Every structure is written in C-alpha cells, then in structure tokens.
Amino acid sequence: MKNLLVEKNSGPNIIVKVRDIAIGDKEPVFISGPCSVESYDKMMAIGKELKNIGIHILRGGAFKPRTSPYDFQGLHMEGIKILHEVGKSYNLPIVTEIMDARDIEKCIPYIDMIQVGSRNMYNYTLLKELGKSSLPILLKRGISATVSEWLYAAEYIMSSGNSQVVLCERGIRTFETYTRNTLDLNSVAVIKENYRLPIIVDPSHGTGKRELVESMSLASIACGAHGLMIESHICPDNAVSDARQTVNMDTLKSIVNKSKVLNDIL
C-alpha cells in the first residue's frame, strides 16, 4: 500500500476530536454503553452510572444489524433521540451506528460520532457519503477483513474529505469457536507502527464472553490501543441483545481504573 492518506509518510499522526474528547493522544479514551438502546429510563440510568465511572463517550445501538431478520432491530430514530437526551443530561458525546446513507443527514443533529459496523465496512457507498460529513467516524473492522482491506475502507472515507477516522479492532472470524471472534491485537501494533490513524479495541465483540473482557481490555491497553469500546449495562443478563458479552458497572469501573494505571506505567 503506497501513497495512501492513512500512511505515516502522508502526514502527522491524526488525533480525532469527539467534541472535547481527543482520541489518539496520550490518555486512553473509554467508550461504553449497551449494545441496544432499550428505553429512555434504562438509558438514563446507564448514562448516570457511566458518567460516575468516568466514561468519556456513550455508545448505544439504535439501528441494529442482526443476522436474523426476526431479532430486535433497534428503536431507530426514537433510539437516536433517546441517546441525544441522555448525552445532553450527562454531558457525554454520543457514538452510534448508521447503516444507511439515507439516514446520515437526519441523524447528524443528534449525535457526535458515527460508527460503521463490521457488516458495513465494505459498504463503499456509505463510506463515501461519510467522507462528506464533518462528524468523526468510528470504523470497525469487518469480521473477515484483512488489515489492508480495513485500511482501504478508511481510505474511502478520507479520500472523500473526512480525515477524522478512528479504527476499531473488534475481532475476526477464524477456525476458533470457543470465543465469539478472535481478537487480533497484532493489528494494534501494525497500525501504530505504520499508519497515522488512532486505533481502539472492542473486547466485548472480540471475545463474546464477559468474563474475558477485563483481561483483554488490559491486553489492548498494554499493546498500545488508544482506547476501549465496551458493552455495559446495569442489568447485563437482561440486556435485549449481546447479553453474554455485556459487563456490569463494577467490572467496567475496574477496567477503567486498571487501564489508567497500566497506561501510566507504559
């Protein structure tokens, strides 16, 4: 890959600003919240806990791509508006996935960062439209994507005018079946060594098992990740989607505290 905007020789390392939160600087950034926005009351309760723990950015799915068309698909614009209200109440920037280019314009007033999920990493029409946006983009790695394919997806966004891109390693599909995916922390080292985009890690999807999320979070910080994206809930077992990989608030607090200590040592 030569002469690409993502390469280090094309300019200085990029620090992405999500309102006043800088991703790619010295301090790790923590993004957390439930897989799906379930209701206003639940999101308010979750938002309060996340703010107290020190989470920087609130996440939650309003448009949910699901393998089965019969599974919960999210609250759509109602979910977006709920996220907005919770973020405003607790002064937390919002990141959420947009799956369809037709929804970008109507969602922009309510959110601070747009997530591209793993299924949409290859949606080049969507990527080019996001390149015309002024909002920062969180680009998740495709479930079977190579690092090069992932970087070319980022290039689609950047070449269309938006350099505010954060990469998110969320595990890839391999022959291993014990965990939901195989968390490829090699990619963190590769990105930091050769490319200028910040990279964070999602150990929730990377493992699919809540008991592994804390150890893999610390491993992610140890190998140089600029932050973590963790699914959390006040009642994880009752979460509408991805309950098995969702941690409770005590575990999340432990992850944040230990990650800060580890980052200071490194």
Rank of each mutant, 00 (worst) to 15 (best):
K132M: 09
Y178H: 15
E78D: 15
G54H: 11
T96G: 13
R141I: 06
S39L: 08
Y156D: 15
L130N: 12
G33K: 03
E105T: 03
M43G: 05
N248T: 02
F72S: 13
I14C: 12
H233S: 12
D100C: 06
N248V: 11
M249I: 09
N3F: 10
K258T: 13
M99R: 10
S89Y: 00
F175M: 13
I31P: 04
K2L: 13
P69L: 03
E211R: 07
V37P: 13
E176S: 10
E169F: 07
N3I: 05
F175L: 12
C168M: 15
I221M: 06
M99C: 15
V256G: 07
K64T: 06
D100Y: 08
S217T: 01
M99K: 07
V37M: 05
A189D: 03
E193V: 03
L5F: 02
A219W: 01
L5Q: 10
L151V: 08
N123C: 09
R210L: 10
S220H: 04
S160I: 02
G11N: 04
E49H: 01
M229W: 07
T146W: 04
L266W: 02
R210V: 09
L183S: 12
H226W: 06
S160Y: 06
I199R: 13
E85Q: 15
K132A: 15
G206D: 03
K48F: 05
A219Y: 00
P198W: 00
A225I: 04
L138I: 05
Q245G: 13
L252V: 12
R244S: 11
A219D: 00
C223V: 11
I255E: 14
S144W: 00
S220I: 11
I191T: 10
T179P: 11
G142L: 01
Y124K: 08
G131L: 12
E105L: 11
T96D: 09
I31C: 14
K8S: 11
S259W: 01
E85T: 02
S163H: 12
S10Y: 04
L92K: 06
T174P: 12
S10L: 09
S118D: 02
D71E: 14
G227R: 09
N123E: 01
S241I: 06
A154N: 01
I80G: 12
E193G: 10
G24K: 02
M1F: 05
S160T: 08
L266P: 00
Y122C: 07
D20W: 00
S232V: 05
S68W: 00
D202H: 12
M229A: 08
F30Q: 05
Q115G: 12
G171W: 00
N9V: 02
D100V: 09
I23T: 08
Y156T: 03
A101F: 05
V18K: 07
M1C: 08
I265E: 15
R244P: 01
I191P: 05
H76S: 14
S133R: 06
K258M: 14
S241E: 09
S220R: 06
K106V: 04
R19S: 10
V37G: 15
P109H: 02
V37K: 09
M158E: 06
E129G: 03
Y122T: 15
D242K: 12
I143C: 10
I230N: 08
G224Y: 00
G54F: 01
I114K: 07
L252F: 03
S36G: 11
W150C: 02
G74N: 02
G33E: 05
Y40C: 02
L266G: 03
A22N: 11
I191H: 01
P12F: 01
M43F: 00
V166T: 04
